[in-house]
Write a protein that binds this DNA or RNA. Structure first.
Lengths: 195, 195
DNA sequence: TTGTCTCCCGGAGGGAGACAA
DNA sequence: TTGTCTCCCTCCGGGAGACAA
C-alpha cells in the first residue's frame, strides 16, 4: 500500500489574516511538498493543488524570513476568502491517495444504494487489461472490517461474470462501479443482447 | 389622486464607472429630491431610498462642481456593484406611491390565484377602524379597465360579510387581502368557530 | 521554532474640478 | 448643460523581516 503524505494544521490568526500568508512547519514542507532548490538565495516554487471539488488552486511556496521558514504566499489569501476560512479552522493537505474520493463521485455512488443481487459494470485501465470493462453481481454488502464501521470502503462483495486473465478484486467500493439497468430480467446493457 | 414624482435616466459610462458617482439632471433633483439648503457653500444632504425588495439604500446628495451640478456620491457605487448596473441600464427613481408594491408581496399574492367564491380577510389600519380586519367573498375577477389588460390592480370584485361604519372598497388588489382556509365548508379562521 | 507585529509599497477607487461636446 | 477625463489622496492588503513567546 503506498504511503500517504499528508499534514494537517489548525489555522492561526496570522494564517487567516489579510496581511501575509500561511506558515508551514518545516517537517510538513519536507514531507509533503516537492523539494525546493536550496541553491537559490530565496528558494521559491509554485504549488498546484486541487480541492475535493476538483478545483485547482495555485500557491507560491517560498522559504524566507529571519529565521528562515516555509510560507505559502500568493494565492493563499484568495483561497482563504473563497473558502471562508477563519482562525481555528483546520487545513488538510494530501498529495494524491486512493483513500481520497471526489465529493461528487462519493455522493453519487452513495445515492445509488447498491444491494445484494444488483448487477454492475466496472472499468479497468487500458494498460491493465485489453478489455475496458467487466460485469458482475453484488453478492454481499458488509463492512470490510469491524474497525471501520459503516465505511463504504470496499463494502461490496462481488462475483464476476466471466473468468479473466487479469487480477480483479473480490470487494469493491461503490464509487468504483456503475449500476446496470435491468428490465424483466433482460439486461439492457449486456453486450450479448442487441442494443 | 396624488401626484407621483419620479424620474428615469439611462445610465452613462460615467455613472457606472468606479471613479465618482451619479449625475442628476437639475430638473429631476428639483422635482424629486428634498430641497437642499442653498445657503451652504457646498449644499449636501443624505437621501434614504428603498428598492422594491424593501432594502434601504443611502446616498450622499451633493451640489458641487464647476459649473454646479447635482450628484449622488457616497453610497452610489455600492448600489451599482450590488445591482450589477452597467452603462445603458435604466435607473428609475420614485417617491412613494400606491402603485408601487413590494416584489415579494406581489409574487406571493399572484401565486395564491384568487378566484370567484374564495373567502378572504382584509386588514385595515387602526386609525381607520376600531376593528383590525373584515372578511368577505370574491364575487368577480376582471380587469378594472380595458385600458390596462391583465393588470392585477383592483382586479377582484368583493362582497363584505357584514355592514361596517367605515368605507370599504368594492374592488381590491390581490396583495391587499389574505385567503382563508376552508375545510369541508368550515372556515377554520372564522372567529365564530373555536380555535 | 513559529505566531504576531509593523512597515513598506502598489493598486484600486472615491471624490473633486477641468474641460469639451 | 452634462459626460468624460484626470488628478489627488486615502484605504486596503500582500509581502517582507523584526521580534518575542
Amino acid at each position: 500500500m503506498p504511503i500517504v503524505y499528508s499534514f494537517f494544521k489548525v489555522l492561526t490568526a496570522s494564517d487567516t489574516s489579510t496581511h501575509g500568508g500561511f506558515s508551514v512547519l518545516p517537517r510538513h514542507a519536507n514531507e509533503c511538498f516537492p523539494a525546493l532548490d536550496m541553491n537559490q538565495q530565496i528558494p521559491v516554487q509554485e504549488l498546484i493543488a486541487e480541492d475535493l471539488h476538483g478545483r485547482e488552486w495555485r500557491f507560491r511556496h517560498i522559504f524566507r524570513g529571519q529565521p528562515r521558514r516555509h510560507l505559502l504566499t500568493t494565492g493563499w489569501s484568495t483561497f482563504v476568502t473563497s473558502k471562508r476560512l477563519v482562525a481555528g479552522d483546520s487545513f488538510v493537505f494530501l498529495r494524491t491517495s486512493q483513500f481520497i474520493v471526489g465529493l461528487n463521485k462519493y455522493l453519487e455512488a452513495v445515492n445509488k444504494c447498491f444491494g445484494v443481487s444488483m448487477r454492475f459494470k466496472m472499468r479497468f485501465e487500458e494498460k491493465v487489461s485489453p478489455r475496458r470493462s467487466y460485469t458482475g453481481t453484488v453478492v454481499g454488502v458488509e463492512d470490510l472490517s469491524s474497525q471501520w464501521e459503516n465505511s463504504k470502503w470496499r463494502s461490496l462483495r462481488v462475483q464476476w461474470d466471466e473468468a479473466a486473465s487479469i487480477p480483479r478484486p473480490e470487494r469493491v467500493s461503490p464509487w468504483e462501479i456503475e449500476p446496470m439497468t435491468l428490465l424483466f430480467g433482460v439486461d439492457l446493457r449486456n453486450p450479448s443482447n442487441a442494443r
